[in-house]
């Protein structure tokens, strides 16, 4: 997954699909110029494109409108990862393959869960390993022609039972934990004076620690992640048929 052409230097021939965009930060939507460069890149390599979108306001939906029109002029078979139900409403009639993004998949991602899962009652255990989608929501997804769901590789493991009829993508190694609409890097914010909106679209990445969390937390832009390099057991026989490597984006800022 990349959010700008600079990250294409990390491209490897074994990858078969390029994810463009940012799922968590509406400030990091690719510009038309970036999209053009990426389209040129995938044309040369005969790749397929997935455009990733974040939660957004009405004017950002209009910007996506322009971007997608441009992409569809030269490419077919484009996937659109939605992380905002408004994006579904806006683009459900378009010739795009819609994918349910990680923000709309309600996995339990608190890194502390892995340590406490053994002591949880059965119902809670099932919930924290599951992905928080019920039959009624799955029926709606089918109605809206959404057939793929994006997942985080949570430490406590995944239970995808009862989710027939869908394909799954698994993001590695970064598992998203939380995000904000406020800036983490603003000096006033750091001094505890005020919550302020974004000031810098190229925020640095930082690794941070707290004993109670137990695992290092990775801070990038407006979101927090933790790392999990270990693939779930039995992944080859599971419904997960795509691995999305998000490391390039996060590790290199």
């Amino acid at each position: 997954m990349v959010s700008n052409p600079g990250e294409l230097k990390l491209w490897q021939p074994r990858y078969s699909r390029l994810y463009l965009g940012d799922e968590f930060c509406n400030w990091r939507m690719p510009s038309e110029a970036v999209l053009e460069e990426i389209l040129e890149f995938i044309r040369g390599k005969n790749l397929v494109l997935t455009i990733v979108t974040s939660f957004c306001n009405d004017s950002e939906i209009l910007n996506y409108n322009r971007l997608l029109e441009k992409a569809l002029k030269s490419h077919e078979n484009i996937e659109l990862v939605i992380n905002d139900w408004g994006m579904l409403e806006a683009f459900k009639g378009w010739p795009l393959k819609l994918v349910l993004g990680r923000l709309l998949v309600k996995q339990k991602r608190d890194p502390r869960i892995a340590a406490s899962i053994g002591s949880l009652p059965i119902g809670a255990k099932k919930r924290v390993k599951g992905i928080g989608l019920n039959k009624f929501l799955l029926d709606l997804l089918s109605k809206w022609n959404i057939k793929r769901i994006e997942l985080d590789n949570v430490l406590q493991g995944l239970d995808l039972s009862g989710l027939d009829g869908f394909n799954f993508s698994l993001h590695i190694p970064f598992v998203y934990v939380t995000l904000s609409r406020y800036c983490q890097y603003h000096t006033k914010r750091r001094a505890g004076l005020e919550f302020l909106p974004c000031i810098n679209k190229n925020c640095p990445s930082k690794e941070i620690f707290n004993k109670a969390i137990g695992t290092p937390v990775f801070m990038r832009g407006n979101a927090l992640f933790y790392r999990n390099y270990f693939l779930p057991e039995g992944i080859r026989d599971s419904k997960i048929d795509r691995i999305v490597y998000t490391g390039a984006d996060q590790e290199n800022g």
């Binding site: 996995q107 502390r112 869960i113 406490s116 939380t178 995000l179 904000s180």
Partner: peptide, 20 residues
Amino acid sequence: EKCFNLDGFCSFQHGNTGNK
């Protein structure tokens, strides 16, 4: 209850996880 994180997109558990 003003929170820095986005309620609805935040995965932090408020409860004391693991308590029976």
